[in-house]
Design a protein around this nucleic acid. Structure first.
Length: 350
DNA sequence: AAGCCGGGGAA
DNA sequence: TTCCCAGGCTT
């Protein structure tokens, strides 16, 4: 099926003006693509501006401390992207003299660059004829060809990649890839696509078969896990508090938070104080504890719901490694912590 | 092959 | 509420 004429015409008339569309520099393309992974353009755009201003070149990014990069990334989610971004910046700077690889195969070897991102950079920057397959492309192709293979099955991933490569315009893969994604985002959108005035409507098999609303097919994801967080917000002399850094493989790896006591269900004050985690942190110190909000704050992630309570713990003795409470904002923290801090500081110190 | 990793906006 | 977003990594 040939769609180039209709697609390119639609694109020239409907494309949005975006900063990374005015360049072929791999650094800027790469930065934008990492930020836009599983992220809406409107959400990523302000971050793109902040990053390119603070780090005009890959050298600037590579030389920055990781905590500074994470702080700038704060609120964008999927924080491993920021750590991989920084690692790859250092690799490109130190091992490749600051020059990005120029082919799909070589790009894919870099940390944080998978199938999609390698194809995006290779086609946008170097016009390599490799098709991108993102959420938009899955949707457009599944409708255009009325395919019911689940897009998140291994068979689907293979099938759609092959199909995308077949219909790719090999003379102008850069425009083709961008146009197809933009078409999926604006015209062939998930809900209520504009089929009535679609330039591809005569070729769309799903429209002909009345299955547009059922495309694409996607396997259901696992159910949501519930967790119960008790944060200990220390407040002792001179308004100092305690932070810890999250490590390991779970959520928010590398970000900072108040000392955390996790439980299998909601803790009463008595249960919290009796817990081993609490005793380990407090030791033999005297303290006075108050709950910040009556109702737990439920922070919803895509795969788990966090039932969180913030306990204000007043102590007289100083603790090791404590910092002033108004210094917390210098650290990269989850949005949950950021939101709490804003509420707490505006109420407690105003 | 399946699970995990954030936060926000739209319907 | 549910879905999905210019996906990638780990097990």
């Amino acid at each position: 099926m040939q769609i180039t004429t209709e697609l390119f015409t639609w694109y020239s008339e409907n494309k949005r003006e975006l900063p990374w569309r005015n360049t072929r520099e791999p650094y800027h393309i790469w930065l934008s693509e990492i930020m836009l992974q599983q992220t809406r353009i409107e959400q990523g755009l302000p971050y793109y501006y902040r990053f390119t201003e603070k780090y005009p070149t890959v050298f600037d990014l590579a030389n920055a401390p990781i905590d500074e990069v994470l702080k700038l990334w704060q609120g964008l989610g999927y924080y491993s992207r920021a750590r991989n971004l920084h690692e790859t910046a250092k690799f490109v700077t130190e091992k490749l003299n600051g020059v990005f690889p120029k082919s799909y195969v070589e790009l894919k070897k870099l940390k944080g660059i998978g199938d999609y991102t390698a194809a995006a950079i290779a086609s946008f920057c170097y016009n390599e004829p490799v098709a991108v397959v993102d959420g938009n492309v899955y949707r457009v192709l599944s409708r255009l060809f009325d395919l019911d293979t689940p897009i998140n099955s291994s068979a689907g991933i293979k099938e759609f990649k092959l199909l995308a490569q077949e219909i790719l315009n090999k003379k102008d893969p850069a425009t083709h890839n961008q146009a197809l994604m933009e078409f999926g985002a604006i015209q062939c959108k998930p809900q209520n696509p504009y089929c009535l005035l679609c330039p591809l409507s005569s070729k769309c098999l799903a429209l002909r078969n009345n299955t547009v609303k059922e495309r694409p097919i996607k396997l259901k994801k696992s159910k949501i896990k519930h967790r119960y967080f008790n944060y200990l917000v220390f407040n002792h002399q001179d308004k100092k508090t305690l932070l810890e850094q999250r490590t390991g493989k779970g959520i928010w790896n590398g970000l900072y938070q108040f000392p955390l006591v996790e439980s299998n269900d909601h803790f009463s004050e008595k249960e919290l104080i009796a817990s081993e985690d609490f005793k380990k942190i407090l030791g033999e110190r005297e303290f006075e504890i108050t709950l910040f909000r009556d109702e737990p704050k439920i922070h919803k992630l895509s795969h788990q719901h966090l039932h969180t309570r913030f306990w204000i713990v007043e102590t007289k003795l100083d603790l090791d490694k404590s910092i002033f409470i108004n210094e917390v904002e210098k650290y990269p923290v989850p949005v949950l912590i950021e939101n709490f801090l804003n509420e707490y500081l505006s109420e407690a110190y105003n």
